[in-house]
């Protein structure tokens, strides 16, 4: 009986990690041979289906998203952990709001971004509309990781700082923040990963133009991220090999991002 149980449990774990390994290996094996220089030409044409413009768009979008979302998310974390008193009503509401936000499917974010930023505010399909939509999406992630990182900082540090006569702000920025930094950074990196992999929310906000956006708003500001590029390629069905190659680049980026985030959060637990 217990042997059978053990076998089933081990088999399930084997299945889970086997599938993961298989997906990664399969995409790499099928894609790497097609990573030709023509896929990295500066200009996209329907012949070379270059992914370089979409890589640049992805980087631009990530930067813009983080510029908006990081301060708001980190400041929210400050408020929730350092300022709010226990049983504060606002804290409860913020918590419900962030939990709800993190459960909303990306297509709903996409529709909202289209109705609000693209149409109501008149941004059109643009970098800014995409970035603001993505910023709302990753906000709960950054808030959560900031909260956890701040909570893990020992209270004696704060007390020592107050005892030496430092004010609250000074304590937060000079004492608490440096200690909590790896945790916050790992959240920001996870947010980056989320933006890299996002498609549904960006399709109707950033649009799907195949060139690099040359403005923040209005005409010419539309572009496509790498994940969107891969979706366009694979749904057309004309460029299967190039889709694999795009998948390889996406996977490598995600691997790097995950490695970095794991490294940083290990650093946080070690520092404690």
């Amino acid at each position: 009986m217990s042997k059978a149980t053990r076998f089933i449990i081990k088999f399930s774990a084997f299945l889970t990690f086997g599938i993961l390994l298989f997906i990664i290996a399969y995409i790499l094996l099928r894609g790497v041979p097609y990573l030709k220089p023509s896929l990295f030409e500066f200009k996209y044409t329907s012949d070379n289906v270059s992914m370089l413009p979409s890589i640049i768009t992805t980087v631009l979008l990530i930067l813009l998203t983080l510029v908006v979302a990081t301060p708001i998310g980190v400041f929210t974390g400050f408020y929730l952990v350092e300022y709010a008193k226990k049983g504060n009503k606002l804290v409860e509401i913020v918590r419900i709001a962030t939990e709800t936000l993190s459960g909303i499917p990306s297509i709903v974010f996409g529709l909202f971004g289209m109705l609000f930023f693209v149409i109501r505010l008149g941004f059109q399909y643009s970098l800014l509309a995409g970035a603001l939509t993505a910023a709302i999406m990753v906000l709960p992630l950054i808030i959560r990781s900031t909260e956890e990182a701040l909570l893990s900082v020992d209270d004696s540090l704060r007390e020592a700082s107050f005892g030496l006569g430092a004010g609250k702000l000074r304590t937060i920025f000079l004492i608490v923040l440096p200690v909590a930094m790896p945790g916050i950074l790992s959240g920001v990196i996870l947010a980056t990963g989320r933006v890299v992999g996002e498609t549904a929310a960006l399709m109707f906000t950033l649009g799907t133009a195949s060139k690099i956006p040359n403005a923040l708003l209005h005409s010419g500001a539309s572009g496509r991220t790498l994940a969107l590029h891969m979706y366009m390629l694979s749904s057309e069905g004309m460029h299967v090999n190039e889709s694999y190659a795009t998948g390889v680049v996406l996977l490598v980026i995600v691997l790097l991002i995950n490695g970095l985030s794991t490294f940083l959060s290990n650093k946080l637990t070690k520092g404690r």
């Binding site: 997906i23 996870l190 996002e198 891969m230 998948g247 995600v254």
Partner: peptide, 11 residues
């Protein structure tokens, strides 16, 4: 958890 859904879909 980090692999983009489009990669899963394509796979």
């Amino acid at each position: 958890a980090g692999i983009p859904s489009i990669v899963y879909g394509f796979f």
